[in-house]
Simulated assay, not measured.
Amino acid sequence: MTDKPRTQTREITAAVVRKKGGPFQVETLILEEPRPGEVLIRIVATGMCHTDMVARDQLYTVPMPVVLGHEGAGVVEQVGSNVKKIAPGDHVVLTYMWCGHCKPCLNGDLTYCANFYPLNFGGAREDGSTATHDKQGAVRDHFFGQSSFGTYALAHERNVVRVPSNAPLELLGPLGCGIQTGAGAVMNGLKVRPGSSFAAFGGGAVGLSAVMAARVAGATTIIAADVVPSRLALAKELGATHTVNSRETDPVEAVRKITGGGADFSLESSGRPAVLRQAIDALAIKGVCGIVGAPALGTEASFDVNGVMTTGKRIIGIIEGDSVPDLFIPSLVELYQQGRFPFDKLVKFYSLDQINQAAEDSEKGVTIKPIVRFGS
């Protein structure tokens, strides 16, 4: 009698969340080898995003125990038999996951995949399987198709993006979500045009990425509104022509005064309904407000219906910067290498055993974009 072939596995070290609110627990887990369409990546560093805390705190329902992390960057270790675009040794950034077969995906609208929520927040592959386990059984994974708060991650060929080997890999992970969300919202979603005015409501990683992108896009009036003075100072350094401390000044009145009637474009990245109302009210006639902040599921917001209707304002939702990652992420890397998109100024590095400190510093506003490093 022939023994059944065994699935090859490897030991990894990863941060596991086992209950609502955390903490992240560093544990030894077992990870399966890649399936035919999958890629095994040795993770070099992973950015920490607001959405990791949203999942940890169950503002979005994610099965537990789970390995989070969705801004991974690393080196390809192994590829499945069907993988074509990536090879072992490639430097890669991991991004969001999409199915590739629903109507929005077939139409090229990858960020609006009909299966986006289960693929990115379901804690498993599309077929419901997981690849990670401990001594007690399965640990949920495939968070944003990657679960990259670990020394190794499994991703699909679709959500792995090759980047130049001469770029600083440990810095690039946040391009997979937070940075591409802010920059893409400006460049792809809002389509901010040269000579226009833009107001970012929220000065975190997404809002400041939007400020940098607005400068690249040619906006001539760029306003950053936040309540943290250090963030506002950094916004000026990154390209904002004006800043508004919303704790001291009415941001709607300030934006209207600066622009002479209202901003052509605004972006709300705080996830607060009251701030969204400000971002809408601060628009000029026929202005456009983009929403990228992620509040708890079911959160509702209000606005003046006639104030929107009679001025032709538009309010649009934007996911992951409306980006096609294989095209957009390399373009952000090139802009960074040219000195035109200095997102490294947002970053502070942490070791894996400091991951809870990284989360705390992010939530307190001490660090704008934490990146957790996994060694050389």
Rank of each mutant, 00 (worst) to 15 (best):
M1R: 11
M1Q: 08
P5C: 03
P5N: 09
T7S: 05
E11N: 14
A14S: 12
A15Q: 07
V16W: 06
R18I: 07
K20M: 09
Q25A: 14
L29G: 08
L40H: 07
V44S: 05
T46C: 15
H50A: 06
H50G: 15
Q58D: 09
V66Y: 06
V66P: 05
G74S: 04
V75N: 02
G80S: 05
S81V: 08
S81H: 12
N82W: 14
K84M: 11
K84N: 14
K84I: 15
I86Q: 06
D90L: 04
V93M: 04
V93W: 09
T95H: 10
Y96A: 05
M97K: 06
W98C: 09
W98P: 05
K103S: 12
C105P: 10
L106H: 08
L106Y: 00
C113W: 03
F116T: 03
F116E: 00
L119M: 12
G123Q: 08
T130F: 00
A131T: 08
H133N: 11
Q136R: 07
V139N: 03
R140N: 15
Q146P: 10
Q146F: 09
F149R: 01
T151A: 04
E157I: 10
E157W: 06
R158K: 14
N159W: 10
V160I: 04
V161D: 01
V163I: 14
V163W: 00
P164I: 09
P164K: 01
P168C: 10
E170M: 04
L171F: 13
L172H: 01
P174V: 11
L175R: 04
G176T: 01
T181P: 08
M187T: 03
N188H: 15
G195A: 11
A199Y: 04
G202T: 06
G204C: 07
G204D: 02
A205W: 05
M212W: 07
A213P: 05
A214C: 09
R215Y: 03
G218W: 08
I223F: 14
A224F: 04
V228G: 00
P229E: 12
A235Q: 06
K236M: 15
L238K: 01
H242Q: 06
H242K: 05
V244K: 03
E248N: 04
P251I: 07
K257S: 15
G260P: 06
G262F: 11
G262Q: 09
L267D: 01
E268K: 00
A279Q: 05
A284R: 06
G287H: 02
G287S: 00
C289I: 03
G290F: 01
V292Q: 00
A294C: 12
P295D: 11
A296Q: 13
E300A: 09
S302W: 08
F303Y: 14
N306Y: 06
G307Y: 05
T310D: 02
T310R: 14
G312E: 09
K313D: 11
K313F: 13
I316D: 11
E320Q: 12
G321L: 10
D322V: 09
S323F: 06
P325I: 11
D326G: 10
F328N: 04
S331G: 03
E334W: 10
Y336F: 15
Y336I: 10
Y336N: 08
F341Q: 05
K345I: 13
L352A: 14
D353A: 04
N356Y: 13
N356P: 13
N356I: 09
A359Y: 11
K364C: 04
I368C: 07
R373A: 14
R373N: 12
